[in-house]
Amino acid sequence: MTRSARLLILLAAVLLLGTVGTGAVIYAANRSGERDQEQAGGPPVRTGTVSLRPGSGDGRELLVRNLAWGPHRDEIAAVPADRPDGPRTVSGVKCLRFHAAAGTGICLQAVHGALEDTYRAVVLDSHLRELHRYPAAGIPTRARVSPSGHMVAWTVFVSGDSYAGTNFSTRTAIVDTRTWAIDDNLETYSVTKDGRPYRASDTNIWGVTFADDHRFYATLATGGHTYLVRGDSTSRTLTTLHRNVECPSLSPDGTRIAYKKRVPGAPADAPWRLYVLDLRTMAETATAEKRDIDDQALWADNSTLVYSLPGDYGSDLWTVPADGTGTARRLMTSAVAPAYLAPDGATDPDSP
Score class of each variant (00 low, 15 high):
Asp350Trp: 06
Pro321Ile: 03
Ile182Trp: 06
Thr172Gly: 05
Thr347Gly: 07
Tyr119Phe: 14
Gln109Met: 08
Ile76Lys: 05
Tyr313Gln: 15
His127Asp: 14
Ser351Cys: 14
Gly149Tyr: 06
Arg171Lys: 15
Gly265Ile: 07
Leu250Trp: 01
Ala78Tyr: 00
Ser56Gln: 12
Thr192Asp: 09
Thr319Tyr: 06
Leu17His: 09
Ser235Ala: 15
Asp350Val: 03
Leu63Tyr: 02
Asp344Tyr: 10
Arg83Ile: 08
Gly59Asp: 06
Gly48Trp: 03
Asn244Arg: 07
Gly55Asn: 15
Arg196Val: 10
Tyr340Phe: 15
Ala143Ser: 13
Leu250Asp: 03
Asp194Leu: 05
Tyr259Cys: 03
Ala28Thr: 10
Thr327Ile: 14
Arg73Ser: 13
Val45Met: 01
Leu108Asp: 03
Ala164Lys: 06
Pro352Tyr: 14
Val320Lys: 00
His150Trp: 13
Arg53Ala: 10
Ser315Thr: 08
Gly195Pro: 12
Gly326Ile: 10
Gly55Thr: 14
Thr166His: 14
Val156Thr: 15
Ala181Pro: 10
Val111Asn: 14
Leu115Arg: 15
Gly265Ala: 11
Ser351Asp: 15
Gln296Ala: 11
Gly41Tyr: 07
Thr304His: 10
Ile257Pro: 05
Ala328Ile: 04
Tyr198Lys: 08
Gly113Trp: 00
Gly18Cys: 12
Ala221Asp: 05
Ala286Pro: 14
Ala114Glu: 14
Thr226Gly: 02
Leu131Pro: 01
Ile293Asn: 00
Val229Asn: 00
Arg256Asn: 03
Leu15Phe: 11
Tyr198Ser: 09
Gln37Cys: 07
Tyr189His: 09
Lys290Gln: 14
Ala114Pro: 05
Arg46Gly: 06
